[in-house]
Design a protein around this nucleic acid. Structure first.
Lengths: 166, 166
DNA sequence: ACTCTTACCCCTAGATATTGGGGTTAAATT
DNA sequence: AATTTAACCCCAATATCTAGGGGTAAGAGT
């Protein structure tokens, strides 16, 4: 592992701890050459399987781009989007799957988006779930009214998987 | 390391290779329990925590964009900015922190920017430190006159952390 | 003012990873 | 169509890491 300071190619591990409940390993390393120290994190690769069958690494950027359109003229800034994407990533990782269908990503976006902005949520859901009539909107609105904001689907699974996740 | 499939907490490394020219390590692991395999990647962490709580990887580009505005009409070219961003990254990495507040990035920019161009420095500081009056400028100017250019704060810490840094 | 949490620090023996070699396959590039 | 790249696969020796213990300090939350 390259030293971030002097670029020397060798470093040794000083300390090593599981983190995020074992979903990653955090190491403290020391450069063999210059003696400086730095931290690293080892995490499972998270690949998305597209409908075509092709896989690509999960990208927060792609999540953000997908959601941004639904947020036009809404009080949602880039930080909100970044935070949302982070939550989506956490939810997906917490399923434990190494590879995830693109559709699951769409599903994972819904709960945090609802918390962020219900208007954006409706727009997004209307596209993602193929609303075809006014009634579809009404139905979704009724659902939103009926269910208080709380964990659903993927997110509740993630609660099981990582109870302490806040 | 958790198995992404069955959640079992233990896995062993099957194969391990440096990648990205040594800036990361890719491992192939096998779950001790269910025998499934997955890949992981270990990389040096340098995350920036924004005020919103969102984190994103450190980006030299963002540093450059932030500083470029302050350098309008100043004799500062893209190479200078690239060098500055490199120094900022070094300064931040040399703190040994894995995660750094966005504000710290702003702080880390100040010393090398002063060395580069004091006018740009003043402009940048006036924004970054919220100058609200002419007196604020005068105060800063007085400080600049009083203190010769030399290591301050973060930069001096980095000297301690990585003595051999050339 | 305290508690919780997180990152940092240090130590050691036994368990595990690394890195050299040797390969295959699929996708991207020439 | 040939090449390159990146994952994937296998083996085996010993050098390295891990996980247990024990700490400190800073920051956030109560």
């Amino acid at each position: 592992m390259n030293c971030p300071f002097c670029r020397y190619e060798d470093s040794r591990v000083i300390d090593s701890r599981p983190s995020d409940e074992g979903s990653s390993i955090r190491r403290r390393r020391e450069c063999t050459q210059c003696g400086s120290r730095f931290s690293t994190s080892e995490t499972a690769v998270l690949s998305i399987i597209k409908r075509s069958g092709a896989t690509e690494p999960f990208s927060r950027e792609k999540v953000i781009n997908g959601v941004r359109k639904a947020c036009q003229n809404r009080p949602v800034d880039d930080d909100d989007l970044a935070l949302l994407a982070m939550r989506v990533e956490e939810a997906l990782r917490s399923t434990g799957q190494a590879e995830i269908e693109a559709q699951e990503v769409g599903m994972a976006i819904l709960p945090p988006l609802r918390e962020l902005d219900e208007v954006a949520y409706l727009r997004y859901a209307s596209v993602y779930r193929n609303f075809s009539s006014l009634e579809d909107f009404e139905g979704e609105i009724a659902l939103l009214r009926a269910l208080p904001i709380e964990k659903t689907e993927l997110e509740s699974k993630s609660q099981v998987a990582s109870p302490q996740l806040k």
